[in-house]
Every structure is written in C-alpha cells, then in structure tokens.
C-alpha cells in the first residue's frame, strides 16, 4: 500500500513539475519574442531614417522599402498592430494604438512579472512600455499576445491561463487528497495501538503538489478504529471509500483529465480552420505578389520578339542607307 501511495504522490509531483517547467519555458520564450520585437522596431526606424535621407537626396529607395516591408511583416507577426505611411516615405508602426516606431524614434517594450508559475497570481506576467512601467501595452495580436495569455494566472472561475490552471488543479488535487486521507487515517490506531499520524504531508512554504510526500512508515499505518481490536480493518476500509463519491480526489482528477482533453481537442479543431484561413490569406497575397514562371517566360518571349523586330528594322534601315550612299549615281552603270 505504501508503494502505491508513493507512486501516486510521485505521479502528482512529476506532473506538476512538468507544468511548472513548461510555464518557465513559455516565460523565457516571451522574453525572447519581445526582444525580437524591439530589434525589429529598431530596424524599421533605422530604415525609415535612411529612406528619408536617400529620398531627399533624390536616390532610389525601392530596395530599402522592400527591406522595410519584410521587417514590418516580422513586427506584425510578433505583436500584431498596424503600419501607417507618412508623406516623407517613412512609416509608423502602432501596437495597441500606441506607436512602437514613430519616424526614426523607437519605443521599446519590456516584459515584467513573475518568473515562476507559483508567483504568477501575485505578480502577473505582462508586456508594457519601457518608458511607462506598470501599464500593460495592450498587445492584442501576434505571438506575444498568445504567449501572454498562455502565462496568465489561474482564475477562481477556471478561465485563466492553461498552464496556471493545470498547476492550480494539481495543487488542489494534492491538498484535497492529503486532507481526505489524513482526516480518516488520524482517527485510527496502528497495530500496536498507538494513535496514527498523517499519511501524506507537504513541507510549509512549498505548494501542495510540489512538496507532497508520503510521511507514514509501515509501522505507523493505522487500519483499526480505536477500541475495535488491534487487527481491525475499518479505518482501512474507510480510506478505500475516499476514492468513491462525487467530490472524491478520483472524481476531481477524472474531471481535470477530461476537461483538459476536451480543451485540447477544441483547440485542435479551431487550429484547422485558422490554418486554412491563414493559408487562404497567404495565397491571396501570393496571387498578386508571386512570380509565375509561365508568365515571365511569356513576357520574355514578347520582349525577345520585340527586340528581334527592332533589330530587323535596323537591318532594313541599314540596307536603305547602303543603297542611298553606295549606290547613288551608279544606277544603270
């Protein structure tokens, strides 16, 4: 029985640890994304400056504009937002209505908040303007917004970030399980007649799911109710009954597994149409911007024929001049 308890406890702590690790990975990925966004914004501002000065000097800015468009696309993929063109050839990039690039100046974004899922509730992760600390930047789109919503703290209604909700469920499960088992177990006595202690416990200061441990030893297991004889099994039977019923830890766990499964399935189902519409959008863009080999070949042929035609005209003119210059006065000779 102790082996079974240890297996359950280690499954809970391992599952919890995985969620914690995944949250930490998401957090560091968010840092990277925001720094990418800042770099892209700086590049756009730099290109703005060069385009303006080149245009003022009367040079060609087409290549620079192409480059800027590519960087702006990265910017949009990371943080959503919109791009506005100005008369002097520069662009402004806006995120959540506020400029991240304005002409040649850049406003940087920063990530603040907890570095661990355990602290996420007290200190939620948010993306804010570096020059205006404390106010969320309102990144509503793109990879960064997706990461922020993933790292959101758990809510009592269960509508918080997926990972924090999972961690909270693990915690609640561990605490419930420990409380239920210990409450029944401590009413019993061990085979030697001593009053029983706790079966599982967690050290203070650590979340229930992370610190859950089996604290009872084989000799400290209480199976008997007091006064019912040393080898009585009624407390063991009562502990076995904890697993049944509506609010039991088993039911909580089953609800968590099916809810997570259903959520993952819904997300999968939603991802398919989203991918389809994304693909359609890219196709629409490519249908105007893309290059088709057949079309280019046709154009090439047209120009080649035109060139040949022009060359033929040259030949004809050359022959005409030849007649005029070299044959003049010798007609009939």
């Amino acid at each position: 029985m102790l082996e079974g308890a240890t297996a359950v406890v280690s499954a809970i702590t391992a599952g919890y640890q995985e969620v914690v690790d995944q949250w930490a990975r998401g957090r560091s990925a968010l840092d990277g994304l925001v720094s990418d966004l800042n770099t892209a914004a700086a590049q756009v501002a730099d290109l703005n400056a060069r385009i303006r000065s080149t245009a003022a000097a009367g040079g060609s800015v087409n290549e620079l504009v192409d480059q800027r468009a590519a960087v702006a696309a990265t910017l949009a993929a990371l943080g959503g937002g919109e791009v506005r063109h100005r008369d002097d050839g520069t662009v402004d990039a806006l995120i959540g209505g506020n400029p991240i690039v304005q002409g040649t100046s850049v406003n940087r974004l920063a990530v603040t908040g907890a570095a661990r899922v355990q602290d996420a509730a007290a200190d939620p992760v948010q993306v804010e303007w570096a020059h205006r600390p404390g106010t969320p930047a309102g990144v509503g789109d793109g990879e960064i917004a997706a990461h922020v919503s993933l790292l959101a703290p758990a809510q009592p209604t269960g509508t918080g970030g997926v990972l924090a909700e999972a961690a909270a469920t693990y915690d609640a499960l561990a605490a419930d399980l420990a409380a239920a088992v210990n409450a029944v177990h401590t009413t019993g006595t061990t085979t030697s007649g001593a009053p029983a202690g706790d079966v599982v416990g967690f050290p203070p200061g650590v979340s229930a799911a992370a610190g859950l441990r089996v604290v009872v030893t084989a000799g400290g297991l209480a199976t008997a109710a007091p006064g019912a004889g040393p080898l009585d099994g009624s407390v063991a039977d009562a502990i076995a009954a904890i697993g049944r019923g509506a609010g039991s830890p088993g039911a909580v766990w089953a609800a968590f597994v099916t809810t997570t499964g259903a959520a993952a399935r819904t997300a999968n189902d939603r991802a398919d149409p989203a991918a389809l519409s994304a693909r359609t959008a890219v196709d629409l863009q490519l249908s105007t911007a893309g290059v088709d080999l057949d079309e280019e070949t046709m154009n090439l042929l047209t120009y080649q024929r035109a060139y040949e035609g022009a060359a033929r005209v040259m030949t004809v003119m050359d022959e005409m001049l030849d007649v005029l210059i070299n044959r003049t006065g010798v007609v009939g000779r």
């Binding site: 076995a240 697993g243 088993g250 766990w253 089953a254 597994v257 099916t258 809810t259 997570t260 499964g261 259903a262 993952a264 399935r265 999968n268």
Partner: peptide, 25 residues
C-alpha cells in the same frame, strides 16, 4: 493515445479502470 483523442472515452476509461481495481480487490 492522449485524452484529446476522445475526452468522453477518457472519462469512461478512467472510471472503468477504477471500478476494475475495486472489483479485483
């Protein structure tokens, strides 16, 4: 293979497995 393949089936499977363990005992 994972709960998202069939959430309802996963719930049934969990319940049946716990009933099986109880019945074996």
């Amino acid at each position: 293979l994972r709960p998202s393949d069939d959430p309802v089936g996963t719930g049934d499977s969990l319940r049946l497995r716990s009933e099986q363990r109880a019945a074996e005992q």
